[in-house]
Amino acid sequence: MSTAPRIVADRARCVGAGQCVLTAPELFDQSEDDGTVVVLAEEVGADDLDRVREAVHICPSGALALETGEETGPLSTTGRAGRPGA
């Protein structure tokens, strides 16, 4: 039994750049109070997976992660911290 990948957001780390909202507006929003990320749907469907990976990758503060049954962590295999040479 596999579980759907999940979006993990560290709001304390978020700088409110909004790149995630531009990349996947149906999955991300920004708080009206401080502009930090709001995850609208934690579980990621297959149709949205590539866009979520892109949002994780381009997040300037590294506040987003994609958690799967195989990998977990901020920017695990798709973002800055997970890329060799990043």
Rank of each mutant, 00 (worst) to 15 (best):
M1L: 11
M1G: 14
M1F: 13
S2L: 08
S2T: 14
S2I: 03
S2M: 09
T3I: 11
A4P: 04
P5S: 05
P5W: 05
P5Y: 03
R6S: 06
I7L: 06
I7P: 00
V8F: 11
V8D: 12
A9F: 00
A9V: 09
R11K: 09
A12T: 10
A12L: 10
C14Y: 03
C14V: 02
C14P: 00
V15P: 04
V15R: 05
G16D: 00
G16K: 03
G18D: 09
G18P: 08
G18T: 06
G18C: 07
Q19M: 14
V21E: 01
L22H: 06
L22G: 04
T23R: 07
T23M: 11
A24Q: 07
A24I: 03
A24V: 08
P25N: 00
P25S: 00
P25R: 01
E26I: 10
E26V: 13
E26N: 14
E26T: 15
L27K: 06
L27G: 06
F28I: 02
D29I: 01
D29K: 05
Q30H: 06
S31H: 07
E32Q: 12
D33A: 14
D33G: 08
D34P: 01
G35W: 02
G35D: 06
T36M: 11
T36V: 13
T36F: 08
T36K: 15
T36N: 13
V37I: 10
V38G: 05
V39R: 09
L40C: 00
L40V: 01
A41K: 09
A41W: 05
E42I: 03
E42C: 07
G45D: 13
G45F: 13
A46G: 11
D47M: 09
D47S: 12
D47V: 12
D48Y: 00
D50Y: 06
D50F: 13
V52H: 01
R53I: 10
E54K: 14
E54F: 12
E54T: 15
E54V: 15
E54M: 15
A55K: 05
H57G: 02
H57M: 14
I58M: 07
C59L: 03
P60S: 05
S61I: 07
G62C: 04
A63S: 13
L64V: 04
L64K: 02
A65H: 10
L66N: 02
L66K: 05
L66S: 01
E67N: 09
T68F: 00
T68D: 05
T68N: 02
T68S: 11
G69H: 09
E71A: 14
T72H: 15
T72S: 14
G73W: 08
L75S: 15
L75F: 13
S76M: 10
T77Y: 12
T77D: 13
T78N: 04
R80G: 02
R80C: 04
A81F: 12
A81L: 14
G82P: 10
R83Y: 12
R83H: 13
R83V: 08
P84W: 12
A86E: 11
